[in-house]
């Protein structure tokens, strides 16, 4: 099983690259995010607030926002591409 996670802005800075390939058998977006924060614990304060995913974090599975598909319990499968966008504030 292989899932590609693509990160933007300061998430990319923390991880040090645009893409992270995850090869564990995972079934939901939550498990993918757990795998990611397990590898890169510095991401946690940028993704979560008091244990909840920050409301401004946008996660897309194959281009579809998880807001439309049940949030973190959205299922994932082999070959999925997950994009994680924070808002950015500069102007």
């Amino acid at each position: 099983m292989s899932i590609k996670v693509i990160l933007f802005a300061n998430y990319r800075e923390i991880v040090g690259s645009k893409e992270v390939e995850i090869n564990s058998p995972l079934s939901t977006v939550q498990e993918v995010v757990n795998e990611l924060t397990g590898k890169f614990p510095a991401l946690i304060p940028f993704l979560y607030h008091e244990g909840e995913l920050k409301r401004y974090v946008n996660i897309l599975v194959n281009g579809v926002t998880i807001k439309d598909t049940g949030g973190l319990i959205t299922p994932v499968s082999d070959g999925n591409e997950i994009k994680v966008f924070p808002p950015v504030s500069g102007g």
Binding site: F8, A9, N10, R55, Y56, P87, V88, S89, G90, G91
Partner: peptide, 25 residues
């Protein structure tokens, strides 16, 4: 908005599109 080599843009039309708080609550 911009950050580094990244940017975001959308056009908000009241009553027709989400507003900024819908997008970034």
């Amino acid at each position: 908005s911009v950050w580094g080599l990244e940017g975001r843009i959308t056009t908000i039309i009241p009553g027709k599109t989400p507003c900024l708080e819908c997008i970034v609550p």
